[in-house]
């Protein structure tokens, strides 16, 4: 008989009655699944207010120039998160550590001819940096939450662009399918904004079904799928400029729910794992695909650093 002992889902021990030995599993099954399910549920709930706020606060993105809107968002986020950081971090201790690091850095310059002073100062600087890191962990973990939610919302605007009229895209449906089992009956209906030009193409080994669609009309629309006589839908964006684009309707996976917050996720028992549309990349070194994250990082950091003395943050 096999016993599984799970601690918070990510450490699982297995033992049998005769050998009585423990084997560590980094990845486990039941415990982790339960935990991931809970987190997925939390993420789905969190996405509701997050989408409302995201829609309201990021609405100007739709009417502003891309570079301008992302600069504004990054700046405001940098300063706001700096203020949050101030109140959730131990500023006094950080201040003392920074002072110590500063002092030892100055000692490198003041006593530069002494190798022993240089080496001891280096050791103290490393020690300071380590403690700075240790004292950063809790604030880091707290700040990650709003940053991630914000980035997820921003991703819907900047990561890809909507389809232009006449442009084609691949629609990918991933199924919760095991080899050997029969594929369900699946079809994609034509929508006012897009027509199906090819598909479905089934890839049994991957459990995926592909269609090719062509955009025919600007606007927000929905693609309707029939799967074993059940209807499921997926949002579609066609148009110019900036609008919120939901790349994927996620399955019951908390990271996917976090990253693709706009559409309701498929349930844990759903046959569908996800439906995604392969939207074209947004071409820009500032607010284009993938670049926007780096731009956000740099601009938010610059503003945060600039406002450090104003907000008196160490």
């Amino acid at each position: 008989m096999i016993w599984r002992v799970s601690i918070f889902g990510f450490k699982t021990f297995e033992t049998n009655e005769t050998q009585c030995n423990l084997t560590l599993y980094v990845k486990s099954s039941i415990g982790q699944d339960n935990l991931m399910g809970v987190i997925a549920k939390i993420m789905a709930w969190v996405n509701i207010p997050s989408n409302i706020f995201g829609k309201l606060l990021l609405a100007p993105v739709g009417v502003l120039q891309g570079w301008f809107s992302i600069t504004i968002i990054s700046a405001v986020a940098g300063v706001a998160l700096l203020a949050v950081f101030k109140y959730i971090s131990d500023q006094e201790t950080r201040g003392k550590i920074w002072d110590s690091i500063h002092a030892h850095m100055l000692s490198l310059r003041l006593f530069k001819d002494s190798l022993s002073v240089t080496m001891r100062a280096e050791a103290q600087i490393f020690k300071g940096a380590f403690f700075l890191l240790v004292y950063s962990i809790i604030p880091l973990l707290v700040i990650i939450i709003p940053v991630t939610l914000l980035l997820a919302q921003m991703g819907q605007w900047y990561q890809v662009r909507p389809l232009n009229v006449g442009e084609q895209a691949i629609v990918i449906m991933k199924l919760n399918h095991h080899m050997g089992e029969p594929f369900p009956e699946v079809s994609l209906d034509a929508a006012p904004a897009a027509e199906v030009t090819a598909g479905p193409v089934r890839v049994l080994s991957k459990g995926e079904i592909y269609w090719k669609i062509r955009a025919i009309e600007n606007g927000k629309d929905r693609l309707f799928f029939n799967i074993d006589n059940k209807k499921v839908e997926k949002a579609l964006s066609v148009g110019d400029g900036f609008s919120r684009v939901s790349v994927e309707r996620p399955g019951w996976n908390w990271t996917d729910i976090l990253m693709y917050p706009l559409e309701k996720p498929f349930g844990a028992d759903s046959m569908i794992t996800s439906i995604a549309i392969d939207y074209p990349d947004r071409e820009s070194k500032i607010c284009g695909t993938n670049w926007w994250v780096f731009y956000f990082f740099i601009v938010s950091m610059i503003f945060a650093v600039t406002f450090m003395p104003v907000l008196k943050v160490r």
Partner: peptide
């Protein structure tokens, strides 16, 4: 897959300083 979501001021404030210090220390050493 979501690692990119953690790059930003959240991580930046907390970690960048330490790494900058370490980098400077190594360079100066």
């Amino acid at each position: 897959g979501t690692a990119q979501a953690y790059i930003g001021p959240g991580a930046g404030f907390a970690v960048m300083g330490s790494f900058l210090v370490m980098f400077t220390a190594i360079l100066s050493a």
